[in-house]
Design a protein around this nucleic acid. Structure first.
Lengths: 222, 222
DNA sequence: TGGAAAAAGTCTTTTAGCCGACAAACACAA
DNA sequence: TTGTGTTTGTCGGCTAAAAGACTTTTTCCA
């Protein structure tokens, strides 16, 4: 158990080049938790001000806006960071929901993490670059939403998930489908009905096939 | 001249608490430049991979998208950081245009800056927090664009500039108007015509008055 | 000072995609 | 297997705002 945790952090790009004693140190301040499908991780309360990294499974990040609508902000996969990335404090109107059967994540109190990186400048720089990268990712996603029509956005969304999956010999990528049309709509900033009918359009165009459990995308068109 | 540069960095929130020798060090790697209205600062070529901070004046950040359209991404004011914030590399399709009569900025090569923060972890943490703050700002701007109608977006845009200006005794904030309707449209993700007619609607509603030189906004409605 | 270019103003037409309403299909529990 | 909640499918009406076309005003510099 402990060794798997050590192994995970050692292989995380943030901590890859640390020596053993530093790795022990980061392991020491790390808390692990395994949760089940549908479980919610609130970023407030006992998790207030924590930086998380996902060790296993997948999550969706949800935000409640002022009108009380649930907005799906992001889908995260293994290795991704989330939570109080700015090392300031957590957003009280945000939480994560587990999509996979189980998910394991690791977290640090921002204060601990801050203290840690103050003595490991190379981690500080890596972390800064990581945040910068995440920033650009957000920027791209939003410019996608603003300047592309819904169909393009949907295809880009599929492309985005597909890049983390293997292509089958028949030229299709099979994506496990954790998400409802409502979720997808929220992610690409559209409506349930539009997503449903666009998915059917794509199906009739031969670009995708899908069931409730998976979506298969013809990789060549992406 | 040199003392003013020293003074600027000393008072920048990123470097505020550095001792004299560290301040000298950051001053040593800083390059200053003063440019005039309309001048363009490309982020590629000789400026490739630089982090900038604006010492005086105001700028707009413009991006050329794949279709060749100019998108106004941001308006920056004194103290703001821009350029290769992720410390990786600069965006070749982005540049800054000077809006004020003159602008002075200070810049560091990312490699120099990276080296600097490696030995000043507290600056690294501050920088990370700064990026985090900028992150939230981006998030807010885009959620504004995605979920509000154009009129609300326009008002929020005005509010956003207004908060950096003094309120007149008559309850109006006077904003110098560097921007064309086209620029505003681009910032709030709308069209020139829509902005023009909305501004006139707001004028007839008594919420704003404007000329080519300034916009006055009734602060109470914001 | 005049004349061209840029910006602003005002129409009208067009359209993407939101929204509500309802029905069908599925999931899951008892 | 039957019932109940959830997700998906389909349709037409509707509207905000984009897009186009043209005029008027302002800017600015030769």
């Amino acid at each position: 158990m402990y060794s798997s945790q050590y192994w995970y952090l050692q292989n995380h790009s943030l901590f890859k080049h640390l020596n053993n004693s530093d790795l022990n140190e980061i392991c020491y301040i790390a808390a692990y938790k395994t949760v089940r499908k549908g479980d919610i991780i609130f970023f407030s309360e006992e998790n207030n001000g924590r930086v998380f990294t996902l060790k296993k499974g997948s999550l969706k990040i949800v935000k409640i806006d002022v009108e009380g609508n649930e907005i799906v902000k992001d889908i995260l996969k293994v290795g991704d960071l989330f939570g109080s990335l700015d090392l300031i404090e957590s957003n009280e109107d945000e939480y994560a929901i587990v999509l996979s059967d189980t998910a394991t994540f690791c977290s640090f109190k921002t204060a601990d993490f801050e203290k840690f990186i103050e003595n490991k400048p190379e981690v500080a720089v890596k972390y800064t670059k990581w945040i910068g990268f995440w920033f650009k990712r957000l920027e791209n996603r939003y410019s996608n939403i603003m300047f592309k029509d819904v169909k393009t956005r949907l295809l880009n969304f599929l492309k985005d998930i597909a890049k983390d999956h293997q292509t089958d010999p028949d030229g299709y990528v099979s994506l496990p489908n954790y998400l409802t049309h409502q979720d997808i709509a929220s992610l690409i900033c559209s409506t349930r009905q539009t997503v449903t009918s666009l998915l059917n359009t794509l199906k009739s165009e031969g670009i995708i096939t899908y069931s409730r459990k998976e979506i298969k995308v013809k990789i060549s068109v992406l």
